[in-house]
Amino acid sequence: MTLLLDAVLCVLLLGTALAAVLGRGVFRAIVFFIVYGLLLSVGWVRLEAVNVALAEAAIGAGLTGILLLTTYGKLTRVSAEAEPDDAGVNLPVALVSVAVAGALAWAWSVLPEPTRPRAELAEALPRAGVENPVTAVLLSFRAWDTLLESVVLLAALIGLWLLGRDEDWQQRLGVPQHARPGGIMTSFGRVLPPVGFLVGVYLVFIGADEPGGAFQGGTVLAAVGLVAALAGLIQPPRIGQWQWHAGLVLGPLVFLLAGVAGALSDSGFLGYPEAIAGTAILVIEAALAASIAVTLAFLVIGPPEKGHRE
């Protein structure tokens, strides 16, 4: 039975991937890409990598999907030519892609079966302060990677804001949204955010011991903000409103300060004393989730544009 399920999943994954790459039309490609991401997260669950599955569903399928759809919407607004002519397959790109895929398939066939859990991890995990090994890797063993990743998001957001026009710089962020009062979007905007907020906060807090964490929870929180903005319940801010800027930097700042505090004590940069490691990680995760939520929401909303109602 499980074999059948896996076989069907593999066929669907390949099918949606091919449809996204080879199919006609940008919109269809985006839809297939989102479906592919959701199927992929099911695949991660089958591989017992629930953390990755959550991240794939939230960021790979959800957030990337909405970014692509927003871009598509903007392109169709700018010109009717958003659908490119059917240019056919780009042969050099296709050949390189097939070659790389073939090489990776070969490597997969010759690589050894992974042993898990690794001895070093099993030995170190009790000292990390959290039970979820993924959180231990992200926030403790390889915290420097995660710290830099959280800053990468900021670099991306600044890059995006730079795409705004000079004359619109003081305007509110994003395309103005007009939701009909009493319409479906407005009702959604009232029902979904409280539920989403609870789910997001839960994902952050459960991340210490069970699958979840700052990135997954932050993405859900970003979605909450976006639904409220789409429903017209909150107005997107302007660049320069200090509360929002503080929200953007809170997570990386708390992370950095914790790291430096470790360096000043005996634990070393980005090390936490064993007694308070669990608490420290939770505080960092909560701050990171807040900043990730604000950053991701701003990435979807886009650079400042004119035309907002005041």
Binding site: R118, E120, L121, A124, S140, F141, R142, A143, W144, D145, G262, S267, G268, F269, L270, G271, Y272
Partner: peptide, 12 residues
């Protein structure tokens, strides 16, 4: 410098 006091292969 071994970050966080974790030696490779676990740490950086």
């Amino acid at each position: 410098l071994e970050l966080g006091g974790w030696a490779p292969p676990l740490g950086i």
